[in-house]
Amino acid sequence: MSEESPVAARRTVSASDVARAAGVSMQTVSRVVRDLDNVQPATRDRVREAMTSLGYRPNRAARALRSGRFRTIGVIMFTLSSYGNMRTLDAIAEAASALDHTVTLLPVHQRTRGGVSTAFTRLSEQAVDGIVIVIEANLDETEIDLPTDVPIVVLDSSRASERPVVDTDQAQGARLATQHLLDLGHETVWHAAGPDSSFSARRRQESWRATLEAAGRPVPPVFEGDWTTSSGYRIGLEIVNRPEITAVFAANDQTALGILRACHEFGRRVPEDLSVVGFDDMPESDSFWPPLTTVHQSFDDVGRLSIEILMAEIAGSKGAASTIVPTRLVVRDSTAAPRA
């Protein structure tokens, strides 16, 4: 008789094996797996020890069939190249993980109605409980056919939405940045913008313009950028030889960093000759030279709130239609009063 191979002898550990080892019923094992409260702590510890010693892994697929829940959140995002989107994704994943949910990411490279619709179809095939969509593009939500059979929370979108929206108060942040420079005594504030395809960039630009107009100050032409340090550097090369520009509000910290580099290379002193304000408050922004005055936005709060609201939607509750996360100005050494 041939000897049975180790592979043939290997058997998947079942819940009944755990129940037998722990001396409990199958129902008790199921309660522990589902993390229900109606199990005595000592019993729960005994079951978990048995699970660990036997190498038992709960079957998520089977649990999903029984409960109708997959414990998976889908995320649709237009780009992974921006700092803001990466931080937002990280915050979403952390918040979902804290609730024992996994995240399935689907980047959308085709910024069209069809591209988003295809993304929804692909996610529905992967069985998710709900979806967070980070629109962050020049594509109005009203142009997108959002499915009606899955809970959805929208980030960085137009406010005209039937779905819950979570966003940073972009307008408040731009207003704080612009007003700070005006309060220092600058006659006006120039703006190094983000891409026009971005809702965030457009909101910041609109608020910058409105703040200048409300103060009765001249509104200069906009420097067009794309969130990158290279575009900031290109803008900085335009600024260094224009002494009439004494203050600039950059749409994000990376753009501001590029401007600072150009100023350093061509002898335009910051903040003595030019004050610079960024937006994001990247962890490295206090190590720029000089340390950057910037607008802080809480990506952690955006991610946490988006998951909290989505979980409420999944459970059948309706949350607030729009949740706006406030910003705050962090004043460092890159801004000062203009030279007399």
Rank of each mutant, 00 (worst) to 15 (best):
H296L: 09
R46V: 00
D300Q: 10
V29M: 11
I144V: 15
D280Q: 02
I131L: 03
R113P: 09
R66N: 10
I239E: 09
P326Y: 02
T43H: 05
T52P: 04
V295F: 08
H109G: 12
T52K: 12
P291E: 07
A98D: 14
G68Y: 01
T168Q: 01
A251W: 04
A312H: 08
V75N: 07
D35I: 03
H296W: 08
L89Q: 09
P243V: 12
R122D: 01
E125P: 08
T188V: 04
D273I: 00
V189M: 01
R69M: 12
A50L: 00
V108L: 11
A8W: 13
Y56D: 09
N85C: 13
S81A: 15
V270K: 02
F120W: 09
A95D: 07
R304F: 04
L65W: 00
D129E: 08
D226T: 01
S14P: 01
D226F: 06
R113C: 06
V165P: 03
G173I: 02
R268N: 09
A91N: 10
R10F: 12
L237K: 14
Y83F: 14
L146N: 00
D253K: 03
I135Q: 02
L146K: 00
S25T: 12
L89S: 07
R328S: 11
F78T: 13
V150Y: 02
Q170R: 03
G173C: 11
R163G: 02
L99I: 08
E3D: 15
S198Y: 06
R175W: 05
P243C: 09
P147W: 10
H109K: 04
D286Y: 05
V108A: 05
V222D: 12
A215G: 05
A177Q: 04
S67N: 05
S231C: 13
A215M: 01
T178S: 06
S231I: 08
S285A: 15
P326A: 03
H101G: 04
L99V: 11
D167K: 12
S97C: 09
G216S: 05
M1H: 13
P195E: 02
F120K: 04
L106V: 01
L146W: 06
D281C: 14
V219T: 11
A93V: 13
Q170H: 12
M77S: 11
T168V: 15
D45V: 10
P290V: 13
T228S: 15
A215S: 13
T12D: 10
S67E: 03
A98N: 11
D37Y: 01
P271M: 00
G115V: 05
A337C: 09
L155C: 11
